[in-house]
Design a protein around this nucleic acid. Structure first.
Lengths: 226, 226
DNA sequence: CAGAATAGTAAACAGTGTTTATCATGTCAA
DNA sequence: TTGACATGATAAACACTGTTTACTATTCTG
């Protein structure tokens, strides 16, 4: 009965071939540049064939995005064990920033584009997978910081803290992606702004007596990811 | 020679009629719902006519957005004179948050969508107009705060401060617009998060001894705008 | 070996933003 | 007043989208 396994494998290979054809287009030119006809031409199949592997264009590009982002965040995981909770948090933020700046098209689709009303029950289960649930991982790091007394006494809501830190970094990244080329604003360097806001938020949250680690930690982990 | 004035006026009226037809569609259903054929049907003209008044769809919708956003921000201006610099800053932030939450489609187009390479020289001059340059106004409020000793001594760069505060608030708003309906995140109420991050940033910037004003100021000005 | 399931395709469908060629009309100088 | 001209408006087409349908082969399976 090895035939069904082979079929599944061939199917997976075809799926990957489609995604790889779309990947270059998307990463370099964005969502609109990914045309089903272009992708089909690239792999020498007809456009309708793609619908045998993906429900629609959006599902295809989102699958590709999730793969790539999960892969980038995965390269960051090993360094987590070597650091203390606060360093882990800082390092995670740094990796997130680099990810957004290096893959703006990915970032734009995943974090700056509202997803259609799901009406699809399969999505919810898919995200339960901790590898692709970066937010869940981030929140658990925040929880660890709370448990080890990193934050001020009154800060007990991991969701609020995680969402606030996320929003801050997301603001710098997304504003840079959307308006970074706007000539009407004299932008300060985006990494400096990200660093400054990151520091500002964390210092405002730290319990008195907890020392803020020197910079360089998140830079190292970002370098290993490149 | 009143004929050319009348012509210009008629042209402006027609322009307004187009924009008003597009406004409802856009505000309630977003960019993609604004179809040139729908707009044309609505005003009982043919689609090609719109091109006599706007270069393309993007210019049309952006013109509409700028008008509406400038109008919302304008309702906020009068209250500025009554407040001290720090209160003004806080009030401005509050108005910005309300604007983003009340007009998500406007916000999305103007602050979450990269503008095409301008290659158009007219745009630069247009934005010199201080009424539509909300960022310039905001930065000037920041500068006043610097000049009156609101911020810590080392904070002397109005651009950096303005861009950082903007990024923070933008992060909360844009993340809410893009992923606020994501069932995989247990979101805390968006206004509370905006308030918290706003406070967090400002408190981290305040000079020692400067007291942080109580809440309620920005709520009042937001109410007058409704 | 018959039948079901699947991969793949050509062609069409229903939209989109945009351009072109053409017509009508109101303006203005000769 | 008339002829030239600019302008507003249009019908029709263009060049694309994403997507669906009807129809082939091919391959596996009971």
């Amino acid at each position: 009965m090895g035939v069904s396994e082979r079929r599944a494998r061939e199917r997976e290979e075809m799926r990957s071939r489609i995604l790889e054809a779309a990947r270059n287009l998307f990463a370099s030119e964005g969502y609109d540049a990914v045309t089903l006809r272009k992708v089909a031409d690239c792999i020498e199949y007809c456009p309708a064939t793609i619908y045998k592997y993906f429900a629609d264009k959006d599902e295809m590009v989102r699958a590709l995005c999730e793969e790539d982002i999960a892969a980038m965040m995965a390269t960051f995981r090993p360094s987590m064990t070597k650091l203390n909770p606060l360093e882990r948090l800082i390092s995670f933020g740094g990796a997130y920033i680099e990810m957004g700046l290096e893959q703006p098209n990915h970032y734009r689709l995943m974090f700056m584009t509202p997803l259609l009303p799901p009406d699809d029950v399969l999505r919810a289960e898919k995200h339960a997978d901790p590898d692709s649930d970066s937010y869940g991982l981030f929140r658990s790091v925040v929880q660890t910081c709370i448990d080890t007394g990193v934050f001020r006494e009154e800060l007990t809501d991991a969701e609020l803290i995680a969402q606030t830190l996320w929003a801050g970094l997301h603001g710098v990244i997304s504003l840079h992606i959307a308006l970074g080329a706007d000539p009407n604003v004299v932008w300060r360097p985006v990494r400096e702004r990200a660093q400054y806001l990151h520091d500002l938020m964390l210092r405002g949250m730290l319990r008195e007596g907890v020392e803020y680690p020197p910079r360089g930690i998140e830079t190292e982990s970002a370098l290993t990811a490149m």
